[in-house]
Amino acid sequence: MKIKIIIFLIILNLNVVNAETSLVDSNKIFKNLRCLVCQGQSVGDSNSEFAQTIKLVVRDQIKEGKTEKEIYEFLIEKYGDWIVYKPPLNKVNFVLWLFPYLVFVAGGTIIFLFLKKRDNH
């Protein structure tokens, strides 16, 4: 039985590799950028002058062969962290990225301790 699962997972993984080697997706990048002149909209969702210019620049940079990460870094340098919806992991944002997992681990530990206490009785 278990062997079957492993075979399936290998087949799956082959497909996954296929899916992930595709090109840089401009729509995805637009969605991850905040339109600075709008109220809570992404560049992808907005059609403001600013969003249109950003779209042009991002498309150009994709053509130049820049990776997604390089494009974000370029825009952060020009506009600050405010422009990306995924805050980079740095000394200001580490609480944001780590705290949820901390809560997750702590919650698991608390439940585990409850059960262990009981099992020892």
Binding site: L36, F50, Q52, T53, I54, L56, V57, D60, K78, Y79
Partner: peptide, 13 residues
């Protein structure tokens, strides 16, 4: 002409 270079200066309006 297309506003592209302005991005390099952090212009948004």
């Amino acid at each position: 002409e297309f506003g592209k270079y302005s991005i390099n200066f952090g212009i948004y309006g």
